[in-house]
Write a protein that binds this DNA or RNA. Structure first.
Lengths: 355, 355
DNA sequence: GGACAAAATGAATACGATTTCATTACGTGC
DNA sequence: GCACGTAATGAAATCGTATTCATTTTGTCC
């Protein structure tokens, strides 16, 4: 049987760079079995130093490149971790991603990102795609409530799953998040403490996103405790971009009884809000207070520097990865529910109301 | 031979959710061959409607989930596209990533992101990892010059490769980029046109990054044409974060002969620069002009709104993906070198120098 | 140097899709 | 109803690794 033809009688034919060598080729070259080559790669301690060296040399000689796809197939697991997210267009998500990558670096995993752009159908499609991909784990940064069942299915099919950014009400999900309720409560209380009684809220979509709803509830609780009536007229729902923040703020400023302070549920929104104030000729914080959420890299550089809630995005990413790796090790694992601390960062964008 | 045991005589045993069904199971259920199931998935038109329906029903019944890992193995290609980047911590990269994702959505590919955090060794490791992964394509957003050989190796091993953000001097690389030289030249010329003669530059690392060097050269050319001597004392090299921008700017402002205008090679740097000006009691643009590069989402919301260079990051991402898909179709393809237009966006952060 | 345990290696198989080639079913024209 | 071409399906090979189990080699102790 002609096991290696191809080079037959056409010496001018260039060696196709695409004919990748495999472990069998290496084994043949080194005079060992393919199993031994595999062992050299994964458990060198099982191989005699002498043999190990021969194999290493052979790998070098034939130009061997490990085939992860084949390995993944064999062990029935993709060497990838998935991230489900609405959009990467936000500094705080960048922090999360960097944390994830940092922690992944010492492992054999890579990161696959799926972003759903706030669309529930797209999201469902992406979850399905992840299921087909046999990922070794999935970090859920952002989802709509509607797709919780799909996530559960994914989890039940044996994929380690971790929710971030929140402590999910559903105890079946592992979480590495923050206390959104508490954080929003603290910020609102801080504004109340400054003397504000009419506090606007620019949030995300609280109908569909648990994390946003948690913040809304925190805001409401603080108001309630202070005996301030909740006024839906000064609560708006937006996607977290500066432009949307500006529009939302303009809307609030056009109101008959405009708020004296506005709590934006992300720094991006707050940035836009600041711009809107400027256009209305309002000085921040003298005429109106604005606060954000996340403490992204530009927050200290806003004018005025943004008072906000520090969220440990980077740390969250690292911890989420560790949670997944943990699930791999003791795969009959207990629930992981880690709540990372947030911190009120007081800068210059909030002050007592101007009467 | 017992092809389907398991359910034998222990009705209380729960069906393990992890025992995923494969095409053979579906085929058995539908009373067809496994090949037919495969055809139903990929080329339904080859299968009689009647059969197609039977197979679809069988898939439903056994809870079949397509196994991408196995498919990837079979066709010796990973259904993933890679992205090599320094860091995702930048709005302009977010735009690129969104563009990529958008374009990928209608395909069977997912995006794997590798970030090297400006470290050349890490980068090399990641390129190697990508090589082992048999990716269907790699988009290179950022690399150091040192690793060009590794990229070439990757390309030669048959992976469609596209460089973004720049038109590489090396003609072997396909590019979907912008004219950095020209863009920087235009901005510098604009500042000169306003009357500035002492123009600082806060750039990235021009020793290691071609794209940054191209911008530096554009800057120099504009100066030269205007008969202004290049002064290395007012040219600094920084990683693109607001904090670094602030530090760089502080340094420039502390100079004996401080610049009257500063061109920051990214908006993030410019943002920090603005803050530094504020701390020095300088009004922008009255006392000093500051310009940026990228036109990220927060640029219009800076105080004052940032004059910058609009870079079509989103479009670049989409085009890069298309370039890769093109390489798949006609895989004896000609070189792709697409240069997208940039645009000088004049807002409020630059004015004539104050004499 | 022989016995025995431990270490090192090899042989063989499984993983689940794609794809080629062969074969059968179907339909049409005479 | 026969022949023929096309459509539909099946059988079988293949991809490259991990892994189990059997076998050989090595080393140690008396």
């Amino acid at each position: 049987m002609p096991t290696q033809a191809c080079v037959a009688d056409a010496p001018h034919i260039e060696v196709n760079s695409m004919d990748r060598k495999n472990m069998r080729d290496v084994a043949a070259r080194a005079g060992v079995s393919q199993a031994t080559v595999s062992r050299v790669v994964h458990s060198p301690h099982l191989v005699k130093p002498n043999t190990r060296q021969k194999v290493a040399a052979a790998m070098e000689e034939v130009g061997y490149v490990y085939n992860t796809v084949a390995a993944d197939f064999t062990r029935q697991k993709n060497s990838m971790i998935g991230l489900i997210i609405f959009t990467v267009r936000s500094s705080i998500h960048s922090e999360l991603i960097e944390g994830i990558q940092e922690e992944l670096e010492s492992t054999r995993f890579s990161l696959v990102i799926a972003n759903s752009r706030y669309d529930e159908a797209t999201e469902r499609k992406l979850i399905q795609l992840f299921r087909e991909r046999n990922l070794s784990g999935v970090i859920v940064a952002e989802t709509t409530d509607e797709n919780r069942p799909e996530l559960k299915t994914l989890q039940e099919s044996g994929v380690p799953l971790v929710l971030t950014w929140q402590m999910a009400a559903d105890p079946d999900f592992d979480c590495v998040g923050i206390d959104n309720h508490r954080s929003a409560y603290d910020m609102t209380k801080y504004l109340i403490g400054l003397g504000h009684e009419r506090i606007g809220l620019i949030a995300g979509n609280f109908d569909r996103i648990e994390r946003v709803r948690q913040r809304l509830e925190g805001y409401r609780l603080a108001l309630e405790e202070a005996g301030i009536a909740f006024d839906p007229a000064i609560v708006t729902s937006r996607e977290p971009s500066p432009m949307e923040g500006k529009m939302a703020m303009s809307q609030l400023l056009a109101l008959q009884r405009r708020p004296t302070a506005v709590f934006a549920a992300s720094d991006a929104l707050a940035l836009g809000a600041l711009a809107a104030c400027g256009e209305y000729g309002l000085r921040v914080p003298d005429d109106i207070s604005v606060s954000g959420f996340d403490d992204v890299d530009f927050a200290p550089f806003c004018v005025p520097p943004l008072t906000t809630v520090r969220v440990p995005g980077y740390e969250m990413g690292k911890r989420a990865v560790r949670a997944i790796l943990d699930q791999h090790e003791w795969n009959g694992h207990g629930p992981i529910r880690l709540c990372l601390p947030t911190e009120l960062v007081i800068r210059g964008s909030c002050a007592a109301p101007n009467r």
